[in-house]
Design a binder for these strands. Structure first.
Length: 432
RNA sequence: GUGGGUGUAGCUCAGCUGGUUAGAGCGCCAGGUUGUGGCCCUGGAGGCCGAGGGUUCGAACCCCUUCACUCACCCCA
């Protein structure tokens, strides 16, 4: 006998979980399509060189990489963004190209709460539009999705790499040290301003009056973009970044997104190296699970695969994290059965009548299950009850004789004998 | 990659300082006669106490090793 096991960090999705997951995916797809995004899928396997070197040092270590039978270096996709960049470079797609993709990605990470080695991302990206209007639209979609799923306690954090880069320049931080700077800055929420300042000094990032500037302007308060703006007065990149944030805020407001759902946040850094402009993240406070969505603009990325440079921006929902939050907050209401009605089997010689009746109900569009053995009625009813099937049809010799059937409402226990022709209608009324 | 925690029935767990046939609740199965579930009652199945080794007259319990799961850090969805 083989010990049944699945690899660490990988999971089976049992029907109960699948119903919730499918519901989430359906909700998201519908909203994505409402905004004009079109579906795309790509293979789970890519050549390793396509993925490697795109995610930064830490990221590269987490790529599932191996050799195929022909000795080619291949890798499981790490996210949906790089494959999209590859696609954008390979095909002449009409611009702007707005696509969505809901698919699993793989990371050789150590699993923990809300983190797995195989997990689903739900991405929307816009290729070929450099204006911040595109970035803003992504956030409008994000907000719409979260609202539709019943979320209310979340914050869309918004920042801009242009601002951060200009800031680093102003502080005299060398280009190659910027990732270090961002990493330290990113911890502001977790460890507080004092620790961040200390960390930056320990890393030797702050020379001259940089320490004072960081303390007084950067870390002083949460939303101190006025101070930041003053610091970046002379910088073209910096003011461009600030203008983009302004535009994004305006558009969110115009779209009807309440101000409490989003916030410009200078300490948002994002780990990936390839971001070039606005960057985003959505965090929830309730279960401490980190971000449920991340993304940003990556204007240089597609240029790695083609000479033609293409601006692009995108966001990625973490499906498992949405699920985790919904489960912990008890947001996953009706677990309900997909089967709407169960046709019982009274005895072996009435099987044909049962099958005929079930077929009739299915033709009328009802999800109908036929009980598969002439067990005791008690057992058949228990089956329906334990699965939450709301309606049961009993077809015994009495009913069969004159073309009728008993319809039982499993919630109330009420039951009626009806003409078989009227059954579908009655079940529909019962379900409503 | 670093550091904690936990592994006993399908699930959630009990099991006193090592002492005979390892328990509960829930779930599951069967029954409480004649065509009806959810409540109640009765009965039943189900455990190499994660695995391997050691100490001991004796180990679920102590020691070592190993595996699995889990949480935190790093990083991230």
């Amino acid at each position: 006998m083989i010990e049944p096991q699945i690899p660490k960090g990988f999971r089976d999705f049992l029907p109960q979980q699948m119903m919730l997951r499918r519901r989430l995916m359906a909700t998201m797809s519908a909203i994505f399509e409402r905004y004009g995004f079109v579906p795309l899928d790509t293979p789970c396997l890519e050549y390793a060189r396509t993925l490697e070197g795109k995610y930064g040092e830490e990221g590269d270590k987490l790529i599932y990489r191996f050799e195929d039978r022909g000795g080619r270096a291949v890798a499981l996709r790490y996210d949906l963004t790089i494959p999209l960049a590859r696609v954008a470079a390979m095909y002449q797609l009409p611009k702007p190209f707005k696509r969505y993709q809901i698919a699993p990605v793989w990371r050789a990470d150590k699993p923990q709460k809300g983190r797995f080695r195989e997990f689903y991302q739900c991405d929307i990206d816009i290729i070929g539009e450099s204006g911040a209007c595109a970035d803003a639209e992504l956030l409008c979609v994000a907000h719409t999705v979260l609202q539709a799923l019943g979320f209310d306690n979340y914050l869309i954090r918004i920042n801009n790499r242009k601002i951060l880069n200009a800031l680093a320049e102003r502080l005299g931080i060398a280009t190659e040290r910027i990732p270090d700077f961002l990493r330290a800055l990113d911890k502001l929420d977790k460890t507080g301003p004092d620790a961040v300042l200390q960390d930056m000094q320990a890393r030797g990032l702050l020379a001259g009056d940089a320490g004072r500037i960081v303390r007084d302007h950067l870390l002083a308060g949460g939303d101190n973009f006025e101070a930041v703006a003053a610091l970046l007065a002379g910088s073209g990149d910096g003011s461009a970044g600030l203008a983009e944030l302004e535009l994004i805020s305006r558009m969110l407001a115009a779209d009807g997104v309440d101000g409490r759902y989003y916030k410009k946040d200078i300490s948002l850094a994002r780990g990936l190296d390839y971001y070039t402009g606005p960057i985003f993240e959505v965090v929830v406070t309730e279960p401490r699970i980190g971000s449920i969505l991340g993304g940003g603009r990556y204007d240089g990325l597609i240029g790695l695969f083609t000479k033609q440079s293409m601006p692009a921006t995108g966001i990625s929902f973490g499906l498992e994290r949405l699920v985790t939050v919904m489960e912990e907050l008890g947001m996953h209401n009706q677990a309900g059965s997909l089967t709407q009605v169960l046709v019982t089997q009274f005895s072996a010689d009435l099987m044909d009548d049962g099958v005929r009746l079930a077929a009739l109900l299915r033709r009328s569009g009802l999800n109908t299950e036929l009980y598969l053995a002439p067990d005791k009625l008690k057992k058949q009813l228990s089956y329906a009850a334990s699965r939450g099937i709301p309606a049961v049809v009993v077809l015994g010799p009495d009913e069969a004789r004159d073309g009728r059937a008993t319809l039982k409402n499993m919630l109330t226990g009420d039951q009626d004998v009806l003409e078989q022709q009227r059954l579908a209608e009655a079940i529909r009324a019962l379900l409503a």
